[in-house]
Design a protein around this nucleic acid. Structure first.
Lengths: 193, 193
DNA sequence: TGTACATCAGTGAACGCGCGTTCACTGATGTAC
DNA sequence: TGTACATCAGTGAACGCGCGTTCACTGATGTAC
């Protein structure tokens, strides 16, 4: 069969979206091509009409997924969320319990570190824009300290979320999250004025 | 051949040590039994004289490895290192560049989160002792805030180390590390007095 | 003291399975004449 | 307008390979008589 204009692009994007969710849920190494394609409603072979290799998919997924997350953050700001609300959303039980729809960095940062330089380069490129956007929201922090503060907060957030996901169940996991919110806010406070 | 008394325990421990390094370097999912046994100087089959399954090894590795790390921290304290020095060592280029000999949590926390409940329980159990020990070093922080502060600092440390490992090369990676030290010290400062 | 047997850490080949990747093929539509 | 061919996203079987796990076997030593 022939397909309508734009069909291939739609399918391509669909595969990236499906892979992005599976990678975040199970990790890159533990997710197979066959599983991705089945989940996308296609067969194995079609994968290589869209990607040169699994690593190629990983790179496209990082590039698209991180800029998508950046846009989500940007929209949060646009509708009036401040730094505190962004932090509360990030360190929420909902985010903890749904890694497949959550932050790519907290789900995949350790695995990215083990991937080839080109993959890490794409990660780095996208993360820098993210940090920049986060820095802009730290209105109380002196301009020249904003970037450094944003990096530190981002590190806190990904470390805290990961720890809350790894420990077995409540109540410790919830305590880690709410403790993380307090800590991030105290830290911003310390860097303010 | 028969072996001297204690031989099996020595071999068992050796396999755990080898696996611990490989898991930290490449991740659990990407490390195979055959690779571990070859690195340990044995053949495949012997693995099941020592462990019921790969998951069994993962659990023993976490249990032993985390209590080993806790003892290392304990010894650092015994020889007079303070909280600042512990943080500087943790967020050093040497630690970043040698994950196979470094912190298990920063290397494996995201993967542990995807393992069965029993594995996460072992992780949790050991991490709590670690947090406690770290809390005791926060001498400037008011007693009732120490535990919460220790958790937050630990989250910062693992998040920062992971981020520094994932980004591509210097100078950003080094900046993330030294920025992390400043942030952790500022945070302790904010919680002091 | 000498012989027969038990022990058991480790060997190495094999199991079924899923991995990433390749490739000859399909078939609906578009294009050329 | 009708026919022959080109296009190309997707199919599905197959490739070699390594995975976790199983198992019959080895062989040096310890034990029993």
């Amino acid at each position: 069969m022939r397909y309508e204009k734009g069909h291939k692009d739609t399918t391509h994007q669909h595969i990236v979206d499906v892979a992005s969710a599976l990678f975040r849920k199970d990790g890159v190494a533990a997710t197979g091509i066959a599983g991705i394609m089945t989940e996308a409603g296609l067969t194995n072979g079609a994968f290589y009409c869209h990607f040169a290799s699994k690593e190629d998919l990983v790179r496209q997924m990082l590039s698209f997924g991180l800029s998508e997350r950046k846009q989500m953050l940007s929209e949060s700001v646009a509708i009036g969320l401040n730094a505190e609300q962004i932090i509360r959303n990030y360190l929420s039980p909902v985010h903890r319990d749904n890694p497949d729809r959550g932050c790519l960095t907290s789900a995949l940062v350790a695995e990215v570190a083990r991937h080839p330089g080109e993959t890490r380069r794409i990660f780095t490129e996208n993360i820098e824009g993210f940090i920049e956007l986060l820095a802009e929201q730290l209105l109380l922090v002196r301009q020249e300290k904003r970037r450094a503060t944003a990096i530190a907060i981002y590190s806190m957030l990904i470390g805290t979320l990961q720890l809350s996901r790894a420990v077995s169940e409540d109540p410790l996991s919830n305590a880690i999250l709410s403790n993380g919110v307090d800590a991030a806010l105290d830290f911003i406070q310390a860097r303010s004025g």
